[in-house]
Amino acid sequence: MSFLSVKKLSKHFGGLIANNEIDLEVEKGEIRGIIGPNGAGKTTFFNVISGFYQPTSGSVTFKGQNISGKHSSEISKLGVVRTFQRAALFPDFTVLENVVIARHLRANNSLVSAIFGNQKKAEEANVKRSAEIIEFLGLGDEIESLASNLSHGHQRQLGVAMALATEPELLMLDEPVAGMNSGEKAVMVGMVKKIRDEWGVTVLLVEHDMRTVMNLCDRITVIDFGEKLAEGTPDEIKNNDKVIEAYLGADDSVA
């Protein structure tokens, strides 16, 4: 039984077939990359797994439990949490507040105790843990900054911090280094490695930037026109004829 198991997953938008019978097996503790040209259906694939879209057909199983068709908030409670391709955050809140809000689920106080109880005390553990996560991801200097004032790189890091704050077992990152300069990219790569190595979180990531994917991932799955094209280690993918023809050949960014 694999950790995450996707079977013949399809997603149609009217006549458009965004995902066609994609299979995917992710093992616990691995960093898996998904690559493919723009519009290949990668984000859609993420959206279906994380419950933002209902699959047209096929199934998603996480730790033996069928999660396809479940509500997105429920899936994230089960430990599968995704980030967005855009810099998604709560701009009017500080970095710390953003992460604390993301730990919302962990603060198991009811509405009544939220009103009548000592809020500071109830939140203390959460705040402490949030600060820890922020520190761990190297955002410590920005902890009191307003999220909207962060640089793009930091905003994306905050997105990862918020996802991590829900204490996921599977972290799904949608193009985590999009729009970053090379320095920021390196920071993000280090961060993802650290998350897996030190906290044992399994990572599934979609990425456009080939260098990043090749450096970071244990295995890579290639999607093209909504279908799975190939799968293997970075070296295997680099030398796969079909991949070179369909994707790498057209992309100058390949190292």
């Binding site: 949490v81 995704r82 918020m162 829900t166």
Partner: peptide, 21 residues
Amino acid sequence: SRFGNAWKSIYSDSELCESIG
């Protein structure tokens, strides 16, 4: 309260809220 923050964050970005449960 934490509920107040959750409500405000729904206003700010409901998709993100779903993703964090």
